[in-house]
Design a protein around this nucleic acid. Structure first.
Lengths: 131, 131
DNA sequence: CCTTGACCTTCCACTCACTGGAACCATCAT
DNA sequence: ATGATGGTTCCAGTGAGTGGAAGGTCAAGG
């Protein structure tokens, strides 16, 4: 299977697939002409990676998850630990963003948004507290 | 005023301050020995930048906001437009993260987390849908 | 006067996960 | 033979800094 076919099937850009080979996440075979020859197992791995990345896992997390996926003697606790840790980081990031959102929404609401120069947004950035 | 003093007053690392000069956000003077000589106005700008960055504005947004801050004939609508756009992006990112959070929390809840290999997290990554 | 230590300077490399583009080879239809 | 459409490699850039090396400057202490 050639790379653009795999790209379609796995839902990843060809560039990304080459990159994943570069960093050792997949190891497709090679045809005699130098083209990558993907097996079904490669496509499955790529689809796995696509889903894991879509859930926000880092590449290194993906590498670990892929290894656990391949390891039939894994302990589900190891998988869960990775997922829980990632979930914690997602929650933290959401909290950060919500704080920004609250502050910003407040400032935007207070700004007239006309052609006069007075602006509570700039006023706050110029003198407000830094959370 | 030397850089480490400014770093303390503005709440930014010295490295970051040098970087901000590099990309043209501030233009401190120079002493005869080559040291940066910061005026109060530089410190105010840096504090402004620190607050804007803490609200998640990109460097380019910060550049625009700083220019508006300096421009006494600005229209507050211009400021508000930048802030509203940024707010929209924050909201989008929160929504993305919340979707991930929901999926992940669900998977984590379903995973036994013991030393058996069965794992709904891996199962979902291996075959689940990609949102 | 000399040294020590704390500053300051520049510059280069690295982060993360790709993405764009150039230059070049392979295959197939016309 | 030519053109279109694949594929390949490698280099450079993204955002917003951060780490570190190599070297200049300054004030205090011996």
């Amino acid at each position: 299977m050639n790379i653009s076919h795999v790209a379609t099937r796995a839902g990843l850009p060809a560039k990304t697939i080459r990159y994943y080979e570069d960093i050792g996440l997949i190891k497709p075979l090679r045809d005699s002409n130098g083209y990558r020859a993907f097996r079904d197992s490669d496509v499955h791995k790529l689809a796995f990676l696509g889903r894991a990345r879509a859930l926000g896992f880092s590449i290194e997390d993906c590498r670990a998850l892929l290894a656990l996926w391949e390891d039939k003697a894994r302990a589900s606790a190891d998988v869960r630990a990775i997922a829980e840790d990632h979930l914690k980081q997602i929650k933290a990031k959401i909290a950060d963003l919500q704080a920004m959102q609250a502050t910003l929404a407040n400032l935007v609401d207070c700004c007239a948004g006309d052609n006069r120069p007075d602006c509570p947004i700039l006023h706050s950035l110029g003198a407000g507290p830094r959370p």
